[in-house]
Nucleic acid binder design. Structure first.
Ligand SMILES: [Mn+2]
Ligand SMILES: [Mn+2]
Ligand SMILES: [Mn+2]
Ligand SMILES: [Mn+2]
Lengths: 234, 234
DNA sequence: AGAATGAATTAGACACGTCTAAAGAAAAGG
DNA sequence: CCTTTTCTTTAGACGTGTCTAATTCATTCT
């Protein structure tokens, strides 16, 4: 039996590993909201249990075993988020915390039932890919964060990587949902971006830190039929 | 923040308290599957936290606070069991273990959403009453265990108090479901009961220990319309 | 009442997950 | 290259939840 806390550490290391191969204890400590000695102790135990490669002063990397468990937990998390929105009327701003707890406690049977009930979905309510049953993650190679686009670009929202309810509520309010069409109005050099929502003509500005969590694809007028694919995902 | 384990102890004490006012540590130890010293340590802490009245060698009783939390947990448990059967295709024999874990981790918001989705149900898949939002339990005063009835009695199944998947699967197989009509064929003095299911004419025998967990009400032919009330509950 | 029996408690241990304070190693800067 | 800063680890502690072994209390039996 594997323990909830280990799963949280593994998820965190998995996320941080995307950029750096060696994950620094301080980064884990910050992300987990614990003190550095806690991380040292934890990494030792996780190393003994075969979840991470770890040597003192060398940082940590997931083993195959650790990555498997991280992805299993991530699958639970994202299936639960979608389940809460689709079946229980949650808003995308409300699902994260609930899923972050339950992910550690649902059985494999319940995971399977939820997946079936939802029609074996591929993305969660924030547009993030749900790892498959055999724990493959299909990254959307085409998407980029909206602050990477030039002024005047017309883009389609494909993912929002921010868990803050306040941010998500604000985005909902201004009309930024998965599948929404946005026009990049202005990219100011001091870290501010102005966007316009096609549907409502609402215009609003965001700090580029927030904009960097909004992932989009270039709008392709020829693929109008394909935009239906996005809206079914909301 | 209250801890999962405390909730399990409180549920156990609540259950054992139904008969005895003072619950013996040994009874708690047996029910929880732990050693007696574990219970002593736990009762001390729960007493310090105001969940139980407890003095050494005197056994334990729930405080108002403890009972409230026990019932809150029981509400979670029974709502989850019904949710799993109604929404996720679980059989009544499969729900207990899953609910026994999740009961400690769902938020009050999720509890409320589940209750609403299920139409504010009053009984779980085993016929046990679901504590109301304000934590009242409506006991069914009319029901008695089937082994209390005379041979020839015609009765309606209203509750099965057994969590064992094997027993529940067996009962399903022979046709004992909530709302089923049973005829008491024979009550043997050496602890065996023979019953017949009205619908299928299946006849089968049970040890009286198992029979004592099957609760029924005397079938009243005038209340045929009321039997619809039972079947909607399955 | 005194002795035997059984239940409950104390004592001491351990794994988990966390902390603070102190010490040690690595990286950065001059 | 030596010093300062920053990061990481060790040391020691604590609360939770559990155990085994030993002791103490309560009850029951003669
Ligand atoms: Mn999330
Ligand atoms: Mn989590
Ligand atoms: Mn149950
Ligand atoms: Mn439980």
């Amino acid at each position: 039996m594997v323990i909830p806390k280990v799963e949280d550490y593994l998820k965190t290391i998995h996320r941080l590993q995307d950029r750096d191969t060696q994950v620094a204890p301080s980064a884990i400590a910050t992300a987990m909201g614990v003190q550095p000695p806690t991380v040292t102790a934890m990494l030792k135990r996780m190393h003994d249990d075969g979840f991470v490669d770890y040597e003192r002063y060398q940082g940590a990397r997931l083993t195959t075993r650790g990555e498997k468990l991280a992805l299993e937990t991530l699958r639970h998390h994202r299936l639960l988020e979608l389940f809460l929105t689709e079946q229980l009327g949650y808003d995308w701003s409300e699902v994260h915390d609930e899923a972050d707890v339950l992910e550690h406690y649902i059985s494999e049977k319940l995971e399977a039932r939820i997946a079936a009930l939802l029609g074996f979905p591929t993305v969660d309510p924030h547009g993030a890919p749900i790892p498959t049953v055999d724990l493959k993650v299909r990254h959307d190679a085409g998407q980029q964060s909206v602050d990477q686009f030039d002024e005047g670009s017309l883009v389609v929202v494909s993912e929002v990587r921010d868990n803050s309810p306040d941010v998500l509520d604000y985005l909902t309010e201004v009309g930024v949902r998965l599948g929404a069409l946005l026009k990049v109005i202005e990219v100011a050099p001091f870290g501010m971006i102005t966007l316009k929502v096609r549907e409502t003509d609402d215009q609003f500005s965001l700090p580029s830190e927030t904009a960097s969590s909004i992932f989009v694809t270039q709008f392709d007028a020829t693929s109008t039929s394909e935009s239906g694919q996005f809206s079914e995902v909301h």
